[in-house]
Amino acid sequence: MGLRRGLLLLLRRILRRRNTKIGIYGAPNAGKTTLANRIIHDFLDNTEDIGVVSEIPHETRRAFRKEGILITAKGAKLRVDIVDTPGLATKIDFHDFLAYGLSEEEAKKRAKEATEGVIEAIKWLDDLDGVLLVMDATEDPYTQANIVIIGNLEARGIPFIIVANKVDLKNAAPARIKNAFPQHVVVPVSALKGDNMEKLYEEMARRFR
């Protein structure tokens, strides 16, 4: 599987027939849509958003794709399609949404759609050339969701970058993420404030070309 995928990636690079397809993955509320919006604002359109950002978990319940974004970093160029995916979770409970003022009916609908969203996110993985795995730097990174997705990305041979997001917050500890996954590339950013995004773009141009 890994070898076959590697050959396909190599062929695509040689033929340059299409854009590099990058998926944004991570747990709910890690900042995936904020990151996708930031990339679009920086390189495509400052007024356009790929999705709505909300403090209520599972705001993104369908995968959204934005095509033809030309990322430039220190002279390197990379034309990508960005796919913002729903958050990966091991348990989705409508009770968690009630605290945000949703009615029981709305909360149950949200939980159902969020569960469908997890399946959709996983299906997209077969069609991607690279992944930005977003983690909330204020949270413990050693979760089942993070471990399962990293294991699968490794097994499928999909290149990925761990984005330690929300470093603008006081209790952010990106070093904890680096310690948890020392064998992988970790780039600390604040997608909301735009901090250290240049470094992320450089890394994307290097790893996903």
Binding site: K91, T115, V118
Partner: peptide, 27 residues
């Protein structure tokens, strides 16, 4: 307290409460 998942990809505990077996969904 989470139920132990076996062959299932998703366990529906009650309407609006789902436990997902990410490993099964991926593989």
């Amino acid at each position: 307290q989470m139920p132990q998942l076996d062959i299932e990809s998703i366990r529906i505990l009650k309407p609006g409460v789902y436990v997902l077996n990410l490993e099964a969904l991926f593989s």
